[in-house]
Design a protein around this nucleic acid. Structure first.
Length: 496
RNA sequence: GGCGGGUUGGCGGAGAGGUUACGCAGCGGAUUGCAAAUCCGUGAAGACCGGUUCGAUUCCGGUACCCGCCUCCA
């Protein structure tokens, strides 16, 4: 069995992964607060976990992995959005969840096995809070329930901080009813205009952290294997989750392995609205950046390193993927290469896995019939070698969620409508005639006119002509292109 | 102030105490009317200062710079 090693934030070491139960490997990823479109940074942990889940399923079996990712659908940001727009909270959260699904699907991310919504687990949260009070780890004060951090000696261990240090450097004003400045809210009272649920402490709503403790317990049990999210969640969110869950279940371990991905930057700077470099996944998709390209760029940097999103990377990724798609043809995937699997098993080294794909690509090229034909006769063994190499390459790429049918739209020929295509075809044959007649001056003139119509004419071997659209995604150019083609056709007196 | 991450060739980006990462770009060549695409070949590195070692870009210490978190954030 392939040995998987993961860097555990809890121990700060790369460790061999040993599941609690080989037949049910359990993971929890902190999901989005659903009040707006997911920004690009939100996609990073999703893709990291996507690769992790694929790897775990490969190693432990398709049905031996349970992947949970929550939706936080009770939050003051959502309340604010509802108040600002006059829409109901449920409308906003339903809509945002649908967006989230669409956007993550576009990146080829598999859906988790469970996607619990916080609002569906309020009773479990109330029960856990009650339990924490009974155990002396939480207390009620002025309608709030607070977690008593001094009651949990390990508080701060995950993030390597001491409660005293944090208090010394704290920049927040402290609510007067807190016993300790670091105590955090488990339950808070709701006004009439805020969403609320009845509880032993009055009508209110949960604090942010308790939902993950309650939902992971409900769906994965008090002890499970892997818990993840962005490194910014390490403190306070994950620290607080640990405090809640470990105090509610002292006999359990909660999450054994903590995985945290580093942050995303844009052109070397933090993505922020004030810098004007803030954008969502949908913004990129709408700009015509294929989801597969976003995925490739994300996976080309190891998850524990800061990742810089740049235009250059995007272009390079696009060029690479195009080349890869070109040699795939009608290949059937076989088994992924061990090189790819081993790279991923080593702390999800996606960058190294992509390097392995480049090598597999080279092997396919090496045996591709036109190449082979050039040297000597082709033996059937050589053909078979080529077919096998291609199948392995495809399966390996598929393992990373690349070169899949689902993400292939952008490499398929764009259809601009019959009118345009008929015109292009007839102009192509005119160009071919000019070239056959060695009338290159005229041929180049036609070519440059076509370029102005957003179409590049390309000469190919064997007296062929091909063409490609220069702006395949800008459908709004269709009218312009049609018009230009018609005038080209007329001026060159091309018969229909 | 506290905690954490980073610094690799022109750019991006990995691994490994001693042997080619890899990709893009560049350069040389093949092919081509031109061009594109493709193919073959190729140079180029590890912030700085010390230490450990037969040997460090890789381990240890320090310096500088960059970034993030400590408040909602993936």
């Amino acid at each position: 069995m392939v040995q998987i090693r993961l860097t555990n934030t809890r121990t700060r070491r790369k460790e061999v992964f040993e599941p609690l139960d080989c037949n049910d490997v359990r993971l929890y990823l902190c999901g989005p607060t659903v009040y707006d479109r997911a920004h690009l940074g939100n996609a990073r942990p999703v893709l990291v976990f996507d690769v992790l889940v694929r790897l775990l399923r490969h190693v432990y079996g398709e049905d031996s992995v349970t992947y949970v990712r929550n939706f936080t659908d009770v939050d003051d940001k959502i309340n604010a959005r509802a108040a600002a727009t006059g829409r109901t909270i449920r409308e906003i959260t339903d809509e945002t969840i649908a967006w989230y699904h669409a956007d993550m699907d576009a990146l080829g991310a598999l859906r988790p096995d469970h996607e619990p919504r916080a609002t569906e687990y309020i009773p479990q949260m109330i029960a856990m809070i009650g339990d924490l009070i009974a155990r002396g780890n939480a207390y009620e004060a002025e309608g709030h329930v607070l977690f008593d951090v001094r009651s949990f000696p390990d508080y701060g261990r995950l993030s390597g901080r001491s409660v005293d240090d944090m208090i010394a450097g704290a920049r927040v004003e402290v609510a007067p009813f807190k016993r300790d400045p670091m105590d955090f809210v488990l339950w808070k009272p709701s006004g009439a205009d805020q969403p609320g649920w009845d509880s032993p402490w009055g009508r209110g709503r949960p604090g942010w952290h308790i939902e993950c403790s309650a939902m992971s317990e409900a769906l994965l049990g008090p002890s499970f294997d892997i818990h993840g999210g962005g490194i910014d969640l390490q403190f306070p969110h994950h620290e607080n989750e640990i405090a809640q869950s470990c105090c509610a279940h002292p006999e359990a371990t909660f999450a054994n392995v903590w995985l945290h991905n580093e942050m995303l930057q844009v052109e070397g700077k933090k993505m922020s609205k004030s810098l004007g470099n803030f954008f969502t996944v949908r913004d990129l998709l709408d700009r015509g950046v294929p989801g597969e390209v976003i995925r490739f760029v994300m996976l080309s940097t190891h998850y524990r390193k800061p990742m810089d999103w740049t235009e250059v990377k995007m272009k390079e990724a696009k060029a690479v993927l195009r080349r890869w798609w070109d040699i795939v043809g009608n290949a059937e995937p076989s088994k992924p290469s061990p090189h790819v699997i081993l790279a991923l098993a080593d702390d999800l080294n996606t960058s190294s896995a992509i390097a392995a794909l480049h090598q597999l690509y080279d092997e396919v090229r090496q045996w591709q019939p036109p190449q082979v034909e050039g040297r000597t006769g082709i033996s059937s063994e050589e053909i078979q070698t080529w077919i096998d190499a291609r199948s392995e390459f495809l399966a390996s790429a598929n393992f990373l969620g690349l070169l899949t049918e689902a993400l292939s739209d952008w490499v398929k020929p764009t259809t601009w409508g019959d009118d345009i295509e008929r015109l292009v075809t007839s102009i192509c044959s005119k160009w071919l005639k000019l070239r056959r007649a060695r009338n290159y001056e005229q041929a180049d003139l036609l070519k440059s006119q076509m370029r102005a119509a957003h179409i590049e004419l390309v000469a190919e071997k064997g007296d062929q002509t091909n063409f490609k659209y220069l702006n395949p995604y800008k459908k709004e150019l269709a009218d312009d292109i049609l018009q230009k083609l018609q005038s080209i056709k007329e001026s060159w007196e091309i018969a229909s």
